[in-house]
């Protein structure tokens, strides 16, 4: 896994322009614009339903936006699929599926294989190395249902490492992980950064954000703030993202909740 492939030239790893996404005509992301800096650990934070996962899925081409587009190193996604790796939330797959830990990690190599092409010895070697990196080599032949939550997360991470991408999108890789594996995962993320890769992580624990990451993106339907940790992770911005006075949407939600509460208690 050399860092040699880290893309060339001056184009930012990811740029997103005027991105709007909606589900059933309700906007989930509204007019998002940003450029990601190179080789940084970037946290995406925001309240539940702020559109964090949706943002990643839209960039990865898993959902179609209503408008806007994103570029990977200045090029459309289709040409750059091998450059980005995606770590979905753990719950998105069936952990009773009949595959071994090694099989799952080897899937990371499929991005580099053509249709009908079988994984080569090199692919298997890279998968083994990725498993060793996350400290799960002993589990290679286990069935995935036998893993704990933290172990599942590490297997997903190993799969992404095997993908050998330049940009990593991870959806809550720390969810359900105990303290010591969390340190391990963090160390791996820092290693990726030191190899020149860009890592974007949806993160839910506000207490660890500033310690773990270099940049932070505050999201709540709109892009509230995005920049280096020191200047961006401020109380003011957090209030904006998490239901401060300026956020009309969350006020509306709160009001409707209050009304519903009054109505219900009125019936009693």
């Amino acid at each position: 896994m050399s860092g040699k492939s880290i893309s060339e030239k001056n184009a930012p790893p990811v740029e997103v322009h005027d991105l709007t996404v909606s589900y059933n005509n309700k906007p989930v992301l509204w007019d998002i614009d940003f450029e990601l800096p190179k080789s940084q650990l970037i946290a995406v934070v925001g309240p539940n339903g702020a559109g964090k996962s949706t943002l990643i899925k839209a960039i990865m081409g898993l959902i179609d936006p209503v408008s806007g587009h994103s570029l990977i190193y200045g090029k459309p996604l289709e040409q750059m699929r091998k450059k980005i790796a995606y770590v979905p939330q753990r719950e998105t797959v069936d952990w009773n599926f009949p595959v071994s830990v090694f099989d799952v990690v080897l899937m990371g190599r499929y991005a580099h294989l053509r249709l009908f092409q079988r994984p080569t010895a090199t692919d298997k070697k890279l998968a083994t190395e990725a498993l060793e990196k996350v400290g799960m080599a002993d589990f290679a032949n286990r069935q995935i249902s036998q893993l704990s939550g933290g172990q599942q997360q590490r297997v997903f991470l190993a799969r992404a490492l095997a993908q050998d991408a330049d940009i990593y999108f991870m959806d809550e890789p720390f969810a359900g992980v105990d303290a010591s594996p969390e340190d391990h995962i963090l160390q791996l993320l820092r290693e990726l950064r030191s190899e020149g890769r860009t890592v974007v992580v949806v993160h839910h624990d506000l207490q660890t954000v500033s310690g773990y990451f270099d940049w932070v993106m505050l999201l709540n339907l709109r892009l509230v703030a995005f920049g280096p940790m020191e200047t961006t992770f401020t109380k003011e911005n957090l209030q904006k993202a998490y239901g401060g006075r300026l956020n009309i949407l969350s006020q509306v939600i709160e009001l409707s909740r209050k009304e519903a509460f009054i109505r219900e208690s009125g019936h009693e």
Partner: peptide
């Protein structure tokens, strides 16, 4: 195999 196990990953890989 990847289509049955993790469709989203499969799509993201092209």
């Amino acid at each position: 195999k990847i289509y049955a196990f993790d469709r989203q990953l499969a799509i993201s890989m092209g």
